[in-house]
Simulated assay, not measured.
Amino acid sequence: MKYIIACIDNDLMMLDELYNKLSRIVDSDYIIESYINAEQALIGCFNDIIAGNEILITINGKNNSSLKYDEFLLELYKNSPNTKNIIFQDTIDIKSLEKVINEASVYKIIPRTLKRVDFELMILEAIKLNAQERRLKEYQKVLESAVDKRTKELNNINVKLNVLATTDSLTGVKNRRSFFESCGPMISYNRREKKSLSTLMIDIDKFKLINDNYSHKVGDEVIKLMAQTTQSLLRKSDVFGRLGGEEFGVVLPNTSLRGAKKVAEHIRSEIESLEFITSNKSKVKFTISIGVSVLTPNENDLNSLLHKADLALYEAKKNGRNRVEVYCEDIDNE
C-alpha cells in the first residue's frame, strides 16, 4: 500500500513548488500526485483507493473545474474519511467551507504563499497524525477482535455452566431441579386450559443387587443405559429427568391415562429386553417398575402429581416388579 499526497492547483508553478517541497521530506512509501482541477483529482483519488492505496493528504489550491471543492471533499470523505485536507485561503467561499467542516473534514487552512508557513513541518505533522490514527485503528481492531473472542468464550462458558446446572452428569438427562423448573409451568398451563397431562415415576428393580453383584461402576452404566433408552422412546415435548439414585420422572403433556399407560408399557418392555455386557463379558439383565398418574382438576402442583405416581410405583413393586401400575384412590387409602 502506498500513501498518496494529492496536490490540486491550476497554476503549474505552484504544483512544481509543492512537489519540490514534498519530495524532500517523504520517502518511497509516499506518492505525490499533481492535478490541475478537483474533477481530475477525484477521479485520480478514486483510482488510487481502488488500487488499495490511502489518500493521506490533499492540498487544495485554485480550481477551474465545474466540480467545486466542497463537492470534491465531501465525495472523497465518503471513501477516505481520514484524509488530511489542507485548503489554501481564498480558494473556497465561506458557505462551501462551512459545508466541508460540518459534513467532511478540514485539517488546515493556509496562505497561498508557502513562505509564510512552515509547510514542511505541517506536512510532517499531518503524516505523523495519520500514522497515529492508523496505529490506533489497528489497535482498536485487535482490541475488538480480542473482546469478540472473549465474549464468545464467555458465552460458551455460560452455555456449559447452564448445561452443568440443568443436566444430570451421569445420564445426560435433566437433573431434579431442571425437571421441576421445566414441568411447573406446564402443569399450570394444562390445568388452566383443561388439557390432559400424565406423569410417570420409574425405578430400576432390585438395583442394590446390581451394585452388590457387579460393582457400582456397572450400576452406573445400567442407569445410563436405562436413561438413554427411555429418552429415545419419548417425544420432544415430553420432559424426562433423574430425580435421584435410580429413580426417574416423566411428564407427558397432552396425554390421557390410556396414552400414558401405553407409553409406560412400551418403556417397560424395551428396558426388559436390554442387556448390559460388563468388561468381563458378564450379561446384566434388569427391569423397571413404573407408576402412572394423571392431572385432575383438583391437582395444585407437580409434587402432588408425582406423589400419586410414586404411590402407584410402590404398588408396582409390591405386586412383583417389572410392571406398570396406575394410581387410584384405593392405593391412597391403603
Rank of each mutant, 00 (worst) to 15 (best):
P81S: 09
T83L: 02
T83Y: 01
T83A: 08
I86L: 07
I86K: 00
F88M: 03
F88I: 03
F88C: 03
Q89A: 09
Q89M: 11
D90E: 15
D90Q: 13
T91S: 08
D93I: 05
D93K: 08
D93C: 09
L97H: 07
K99D: 09
V100D: 00
I101Q: 11
E103W: 08
A104Q: 06
S105H: 08
S105L: 05
I109Q: 00
I109L: 12
I110T: 02
I110Y: 03
P111L: 01
T113I: 14
L114Q: 02
V117Y: 02
V117H: 05
F119L: 07
E120F: 04
L121R: 15
M122D: 10
I123M: 09
I123Q: 00
L124A: 09
L124Y: 06
L124F: 07
A126N: 03
A126C: 06
I127N: 05
I127W: 04
K128S: 15
K128P: 02
L129G: 08
A131R: 14
A131P: 01
Q132V: 15
R135W: 08
K137H: 12
E138Q: 14
E138F: 02
E138P: 03
Q140Y: 11
K141M: 12
K141W: 05
V142Q: 14
V142F: 10
L143M: 11
E144R: 04
S145H: 10
A146Q: 10
A146M: 06
V147M: 13
D148E: 10
D148V: 01
K149W: 01
R150Y: 12
T151P: 02
T151N: 03
T151R: 07
K152T: 10
K152F: 02
E153H: 06
L154V: 09
N156E: 15
N156V: 03
N156Y: 09
V159S: 12
V159E: 15
K160W: 08
L161K: 07
N162Q: 11
N162E: 11
N162W: 01
V163A: 10
T166D: 04
T167A: 06
T167H: 03
D168K: 05
L170Q: 09
L170G: 11
L170A: 11
T171V: 14
T171R: 05
V173F: 07
V173M: 05
K174A: 15
S178C: 15
S178L: 06
E181C: 05
S182G: 06
C183F: 05
C183I: 13
P185I: 04
M186L: 15
I187N: 00
I187W: 01
R191G: 00
R192P: 06
K195G: 07
K195I: 04
S196D: 13
S196W: 01
S196R: 09
S196H: 09
L197Q: 04
S198G: 14
S198V: 04
T199K: 01
L200I: 09
M201V: 12
M201Y: 06
M201W: 04
I202L: 13
I202N: 00
I204Q: 00
